[in-house]
Nucleic acid binder design. Structure first.
Lengths: 200, 200
DNA sequence: CCAACAATGCTGTCAATGACTACAATGATG
DNA sequence: CATCATTGTAGTCATTGACAGCATTGTTGG
């Protein structure tokens, strides 16, 4: 047996991107626990230590993955926000967009919320969170100015709304709630949030 | 050097409990990722394969840990529920109890919600979830009968309430919200849930 | 044109881990 | 007290993350 020339070049070309892409696929298919740097290296056709050049350690890769996730989520939310819609519809659209993302990126979202980031990565992470939360806070603040929502610290109200969404997403991710049920229930959910549980 | 008799008996006595206890401590101190069967065995003063007699694999131990968590959560909630209180206070007490548990058992709660349970363990898990959710659903259903809460499928309303709580817990666990802030905000939160965001 | 030099990849190695097997001690049961 | 299931032990294997040292490539200044 003679070893073939293996025309593969010494340099991969864009190993960093390939690793991130592979990691996302694995994340989606097998969950975060199944992520292995060595496996990713094998998939990319590269030695087991090569990833080390691009990511100091496993956590660094996970951080990069989370940041990319925030970008995609931010785009989805920005795309779904239509300031010309009436409040309830506007909120519903935003909520649907968030839930849809949460449902098809359950494992990724978990990474995004994971509290294991190093101090430096945390800064970028915090900024990303702020950008994301901002989408929602804007809607709330707008509605307050128009008198469509009660007065009060907009951050508190945003917290309530965001928490509810995150909770639903968490239930859906945990299998306690079917994804379709979660999506179908959005209108009622937003309605309840706006009108409260008490009879009027 | 002569090996001492090592008066330790061949049998540990209650290895299973010792492992669970150690696992909980590690979970609390270093997080779920740092859990190692071998490390637990060392702490218990036992060989590295001994845990295998009590837990088929690592996941089995995690499942047991989660079930124990549901028991403790259930006790906390049952203890906090006082049916004689007015609705808003009753809900507030329950919410505070849940949040307190979530905050000081963040990692455990994550395990409890993890969707990695095998089909058989899932049954017990589902039952445990039902028992837990039941505490809340009871309150909602009671209030509905008294006309203090709008009509509608009580499960939907429970879902909304539970999701909001879980969302807040999730934010607190993720460091996006200070634990004290979360606990302090409970009254306002429950009030908002009951009365809605729209002005009356 | 080529001599540093920085990036990027490779091979080799280590300790830790989860899982498995075969074997030994213990203690309960008939 | 003989038998046998339970519970531990010792040894082993493949996988993994991390690291060190070397090789290849491409770039940049002389």
């Amino acid at each position: 047996m003679v070893r073939m020339p293996e025309s593969r070049p010494y340099h991969h070309g864009d190993l960093r991107s390939a690793l991130l892409a592979g990691a996302e696929r694995t994340l989606r298919e097998k969950g975060a626990g199944a992520l292995s740097l060595r496996e990713l290296a094998r998939e990319a056709g590269v030695s087991h230590a090569a990833p080390g050049r691009h990511f100091k350690d496993k956590q660094a890769l996970l951080n990069a993955l989370a940041l990319a996730g925030y970008d995609r989520l931010g785009q989805a939310l920005d795309g779904a926000d239509d300031a010309t819609l009436p409040l309830e519809q506007r909120l519903t659209a935003l909520a649907r967009s968030y839930l849809a993302f949460a449902i098809d990126n359950a494992e990724l979202l978990e990474l995004m919320y994971a509290r294991k980031h190093e101090p430096d990565a945390s800064e970028q992470m915090a900024a990303a969170v702020d950008r994301t939360v901002g989408s929602l806070e804007r809607v709330i603040a707008d509605a307050q100015e128009r008198g469509e929502i009660i007065a009060g610290d907009p951050q508190h109200l945003t917290l309530l709304t965001g928490a509810t969404l995150q909770g639903i997403a968490s239930f859906a991710a945990g299998g306690m709630l079917a994804p379709e049920a979660a999506l179908d229930g959005i209108e009622e959910l937003v309605h309840l949030l706006l009108h409260g549980l008490k009879p009027r």
